[in-house]
């Protein structure tokens, strides 16, 4: 066991725990509202091996290495990939330096990301949007043309819009670890990198639809989701069916009697509780397909439930403006 202190909260965790996991444990153990001391994550996914380390949003500062070697670590570290040591002390939100660095990371993530949230399929449940809202700058300083790509279909169910991708590698890890055959990968390098599949039928696998759930932004979306309205008008319900391939435990998004879409159930960290199969996700679009358990609790913290976005669809597309607007509204 190792004792670690994050922003002044201490906890004993098993050896090999990462700083991020420890922070989440502190939140869980104390039932903290807002979950602030757990660093935000864009690429880490607890259910995917070797995920994390790429986006750098979860960086924290280690002010004391361990009881044995109390020296601080010289650079900020990715909390999702750094394991705790006994006696380690970490600062996250109590460090202006960390917040400054995180703000910088968010700015980097946004410079090549389109600022058209109101027309994005993911609007309302995009982790980048949440992050920009919490940590972003008031105004974009990037005045060059942004990287753009054509939208492409990967298979009959999934649409890829690379323009929005933040290169978190989650979908590749799903393809690698959950499905049995990887067709998907990262091509090119640097800021020209792109996610790609090499043949159209690529994503032809029972569990491939999970790439949609892990994508933190609107780069991979469900083609069968009928966009009659924005997500925040749809009512999420816990539901299940008897399925041979997966647990059949899902969240269905209802509008009146129509199943707009089916997703996995997300935990409070925004991660899928269980992977679901393509049949449940894409083919069961009638309420009669499902046994409805009741309304799904969506974290108050999230933008979806905060209902912030209705008025913004008309706005010109600038995160800065959006934010100001949001702040004013609050």
């Amino acid at each position: 066991m190792a004792k670690v202190t994050i922003d002044g909260h201490s906890i004993e965790v098993p050896d090999g725990t990462t700083i991020l996991q420890a922070a989440r444990m502190i939140v869980d153990a104390n039932n903290y509202e807002g979950a602030n001391i757990a660093p935000p994550t864009m690429c880490y996914y607890s259910k995917l091996k070797t995920s994390g380390g790429y986006c750098r949003t979860c960086i924290v500062k280690v002010t004391k290495g361990s009881e044995k070697d109390p020296r601080p670590m010289p650079k900020p570290v990715a909390s999702c990939r750094t394991t705790v040591m006994d006696g380690m002390e970490v600062v996250n939100i109590t460090s202006p330096e960390v917040l400054e660095s995180r703000k910088a990371v968010v700015e980097f993530l946004l410079i090549n990301h389109p600022l058209d949230c109101p027309i994005c399929d993911q609007a309302g449940e995009c982790h980048l949007q949440d992050l920009g809202y919490e940590h972003g700058l008031a105004k974009t300083r990037y005045d060059f043309e942004r990287r753009t790509f054509e939208k492409i279909d990967i298979g009959p169910y999934v649409k890829l819009h690379m323009t929005r991708c933040i290169m978190c590698f989650r979908c590749i890890k799903v393809a690698d670890q959950i499905t049995d055959n990887r067709f998907q990968g990262m091509l090119f390098r640097g800021d020209a990198s792109e996610i790609s599949t090499y043949i159209e039928k690529a994503i032809d696998n029972d569990f491939s639809g999970n790439v949609i759930d892990v994508c933190p932004v609107g780069a991979l979306t469900d083609k069968t989701f009928r966009f009659k309205s924005r997500v925040w008008f749809a009512k999420p319900m816990d539901a299940h069916r008897y399925c041979k391939k997966c647990s059949g435990k899902v969240a269905i998004w209802l509008k009146a009697d129509e199943v707009l879409r089916v997703t996995s159930r997300k935990d409070k960290w925004g991660e899928a509780e269980e992977w679901i199969c393509n049949e449940c996700r894409f083919e069961k679009k009638k309420t009669s397909d499902w046994i409805i358990e009741g309304p799904r609790h969506i974290d108050r913290h999230s933008v979806i439930s905060a209902n912030h976005y209705e008025n913004l669809t008309k706005l010109k597309l600038d995160i800065g403006k959006q934010q100001k607007q949001l702040a004013d509204k609050k």
Binding site: F149, M162, L187, E194, S196, Y198, I199, E200
Partner: peptide, 12 residues
């Protein structure tokens, strides 16, 4: 960005 490798590719 030319996405020569992206998307549909026929395998001849």
């Amino acid at each position: 960005m030319s996405t020569q490798l992206n998307g549909a590719q026929t395998f001849d």
